[in-house]
């Protein structure tokens, strides 16, 4: 899962909150301030990591993603700061 950062810059990306339930992808980048990035890093959400959207509570609601064996809940605002390159379906 070691990432090559330059590789991640190519291809279409979307923010995590745009993904649909069951869709998976690779984290391309994190946006936002220090504190935000740090929390995401601790939760294992870093560029190059695969994740899958497990639950989407819709509109302004939070989402749950599966990252490896961990499950992480993110508020909508936080999900917007995670850029994901979706896997080809």
């Amino acid at each position: 899962m070691q990432s090559n950062l330059s590789d991640l810059r190519s291809g279409p990306v979307m923010t995590l909150d745009m993904m649909r339930r069951g869709e998976s992808g690779v984290v391309a980048d994190l946006r936002g301030g220090h504190g935000v990035t740090r929390r995401l890093i601790e939760m294992g959400i870093v560029p190059g990591v695969s994740l899958r959207l497990v639950i989407d509570s819709g509109r302004a609601g939070p989402v749950i993603v599966q990252v490896g064996d961990a499950r992480v809940g993110l508020g909508r605002g936080m999900a917007r700061r995670v850029l994901v390159r979706p896997d080809e379906a």
Binding site: M1, S3, L5, D29, H34, T37, I41, P47, G48
Partner: peptide
Amino acid sequence: VIGDDAELALADRRYG
């Protein structure tokens, strides 16, 4: 150079 926060790059290596 790496186009990323140093913090993010360090975390990336740790996870690596």
